[in-house]
Design a protein around this nucleic acid. Structure first.
Lengths: 220, 220
DNA sequence: GTCTATACAAAGATAGAC
DNA sequence: GTCTATCTTTGTATAGAC
């Protein structure tokens, strides 16, 4: 288990160029994968030379780590903020969570950075691999927390343990994004989000239905 | 939409070596991705030279296409057979469908071939891309058919249209497999399968519950 | 069908001038 | 910080002998 809020003391005051390199690398990993992008791609995009990139990020692994850290921190901060905000409904929080996925789905070829990296885990430097794993654990833990809370408030009906539902929820979003990009069918992601929400819709029983739903699904 | 049964008239009588090459390539794509594997990897594994591989598969793209075709056909045949078999319950059919995912999950580092390829769609030769898209469409269509049938028989309660549920189901399996491999947590896949089944569990209403469940979930 | 040899391009990375 | 130049390795692919 890892921490979400204090992900990294975002202390690093990276230069403007370094920032642009990170932006490009992030996009390239999301669209073409880590293995398939090169320093040359970034150099071309920014109008600089390969060697200049090595000044900012000595190795490709260093660059990859920096990209994932920045990405995870951005998400981590947003999730931590949502976590603290007790004013919103759990359903709203889930909506917020799905937002980035839906946004990526509107681009022709972007997926979640960590989803893309996960598909080539064994080809990744270990430092990157660990961070991707941490990202997954953090996000699924966050989702489980929100689902649990929503069930207690009677907003949702969980048909199995919150942790399991969270894993299904997360996997479905990641998988759907990959499918969407390959088939080009924009409705893929929307359909999955709709389906996920339908599964969670509270039974017409009222307040205690969340707990009731959980009980009903014994060891299931 | 594409056809499942007559996927390819599996007429090709490939040589023993070609078969071994396909096996290795399939495994390498599943574990390391298409971009990250090379003819050298296969040559090493089989104890032959790179050049020999080119005799069987002129280009890497050709090899990739052959791998995907064989993989899709294997699945396609199995699904078509299940489709024809009216004796099994829909729940059983879904169990069969999940089997390969659970088996991959038991290996340390294998995922679905097409799931792996989807993550690097833009780095793939178009012929491969198209086939992966076809695989996704076929499988989701198959799942939708089974879900629809199960709902009509009262085995399942669909909380939204079968097509949407199928997309959620498929995405969740694919996503979970990727997450599982990265985190190394064997329970990931089992949890998701459990969660998916819980979502489908028929309401205690009896026969007509499938249809009822569908009605209830209006435009949701 | 498999080998050696080789061509050719691209990759990640470093040295050192400016 | 960015450049040119260069090194080294690896990748895909071909030619031609066996």
């Amino acid at each position: 288990m890892r921490r979400l809020s204090a992900a990294t003391p975002n202390a690093k005051p990276v230069s403007a160029t370094a920032e642009q390199i990170l932006d490009q690398a992030e996009t390239l990993i999301q669209t073409r994968s880590y293995s398939a992008f090169s320093y040359q791609d970034i150099a071309d995009a920014l109008g600089i030379r390969k060697a200049s990139i090595h000044y900012h990020f000595a190795t490709k692994a260093d660059l990859g780590v920096a990209v994932v850290d920045r990405y995870a921190e951005r998400f981590g901060n947003a999730l931590a903020a949502l976590d603290r905000d007790q004013s919103r409904s759990s359903a709203q929080l889930l909506d917020f969570y799905c937002e980035p996925y839906l946004q990526y789905a509107q681009t022709p070829d972007r997926v979640c950075l960590c989803g893309a990296l996960a598909a080539e885990t064994l080809a990744l430097p270990p430092q990157i691999r660990e961070r991707v794993a941490g990202f997954f654990e953090d996000h699924q833990a966050w989702l489980a927390r929100i689902l649990e809370r929503g069930a207690q408030r009677g907003e949702f009906t969980l048909r199995t343990a919150a942790v399991r539902t969270a894993r299904m929820f997360f996997g479905a979003l990641q998988g759907a994004l990959l499918v969407k990009r390959t088939t080009g069918d924009m409705t893929q992601l929307k359909d999955v989000v709709t389906a996920l929400k339908s599964q969670l819709a509270a039974d017409r029983g009222g307040k205690a239905s969340g707990v009731k739903g959980l009980r009903k699904a014994r060891k299931n």
